[in-house]
């Protein structure tokens, strides 16, 4: 569906995107992960036809964006990270305006607009002025706008940024709905936990370079160097537990909370059972002993830390 090959974008001497390649299949929800200034927005803008790449190629459904941007734009719905609205328009007029720009015949518009406003839970706001909407509602309206021409590919740049927890949950629910509808989506977000819930594939970008890209499970399996365990204890049990764990050679980095301890573990199931047995024998008041998988956040930190260290070394 989307093939990006050796994409480079330079702003003067600044290299914003450095030889980036990725592939997204139809129906995939591709999470674009990276720190601020890593090159996510630049890449998304290039794919959306809003920015010319310095070099490299972007194909959407086999069409080269640099050769036929209008054909590609027809297939893409883009939601930028920062956007404004026409304050003097009502919600339905706002949607009508964009349906006009996408060439949707007037007789078809009402149904499309009604369906989309229902999808983003704004049906009751159709006669409200856009300016009177909350930030979360404006984000949802912008999402509805990006869907108005029924695009093959949705590009959502930080759709949940600046939203309160409730609005964030609402946005997540809409994205899940879009996922169930089989849409192909590229989405960037800082909230990695949310991305890992929605995405089927991820790409981690750092300093303009794609560090890793592929299906979530594959990346998790490839990059999860250690297992992690979480042990909950009664009051006063954290300190003796840490002492016990520090004696075990298979235990790595340990972090503590008020009533729990988390630790990296490199070993097999038998060793893990042995550790639990030792803890209990030494009288640590254990409530629960569970294994937690490595999450997207820790993988992101792990991958980008390695890169920033490389960058530091090369700078030195």
């Amino acid at each position: 569906m989307v093939v990006v090959s050796n994409l480079v974008k330079k702003y003067g001497k600044l290299l914003a995107v450095n030889d980036l390649s990725l592939e997204i299949e139809k129906g995939q929800i591709y999470g674009f992960v990276g720190a601020n200034g890593a090159g996510k927005t630049t890449t998304m803008r290039i794919i959306s036809g809003l920015l010319r790449a310095t070099s490299g190629k972007v194909l959407v459904n086999g069409i080269d964006i640099s050769k036929n941007p209008r054909a590609v734009k027809k297939m893409i719905g883009y939601m930028p990270d920062f956007f404004g609205v026409y304050s003097d328009l009502k919600v339905s007029e706002y949607m009508n305006f964009y349906s006009g720009l996408y060439g949707i015949p007037p007789r078809n518009r009402k149904k499309i607009i009604d369906d989309l406003l229902e999808l983003v839970n704004l049906s009751d706001k159709r006669d409200a002025y856009v300016d009177s909407l909350s930030r979360g509602m404006k984000q949802r309206l912008c999402l509805a706008r990006s869907l108005i021409h029924d695009p093959d590919l949705l590009i959502l740049d930080e759709p949940a940024s600046g939203l309160d927890p409730r609005a964030r949950v609402e946005m997540k629910e809409i994205l899940k709905e879009l996922k169930s509808m089989g849409r192909t989506i590229i989405i960037s977000s800082h909230i990695l936990h949310e991305l890992s819930e929605i995405c089927t594939a991820i790409g981690i970008i750092d300093n303009g370079k794609m560090v890793v890209s592929g299906p979530v499970e594959e990346i998790m399996a490839k990059l999860s160097h250690s297992r992690r365990i979480k042990v909950k204890v009664l009051k006063g049990g954290v300190e003796p537990l840490v002492k016990c764990l520090q004696e075990e050679p298979e235990i790595g980095r340990i972090t503590t909370g008020n009533d729990y301890v988390e630790a990296d573990f490199n070993g097999n199931g038998e060793k893990l059972a042995g550790i639990l047995k030792n803890i209990v024998i030494k009288g640590v008041p254990v409530i629960s002993f569970t294994e937690t998988g490595e999450n997207l956040e820790s993988i992101f930190m792990h991958v980008t830390r390695g890169n920033s260290q490389d960058a530091d070394k090369s700078n030195n």
Binding site: R45, S48, G49, L50, R70, A71, K73, K74, I76, Y78, P80, F82, F83, G84, V85, Y86, Y98, L101, Y102, G103, C142, R145, H149
Partner: peptide, 10 residues
């Protein structure tokens, strides 16, 4: 910040 929304259409 509405120009991008105009230009991303065809």
């Amino acid at each position: 910040q509405t120009l991008d929304l105009l230009l991303c259409t065809d």
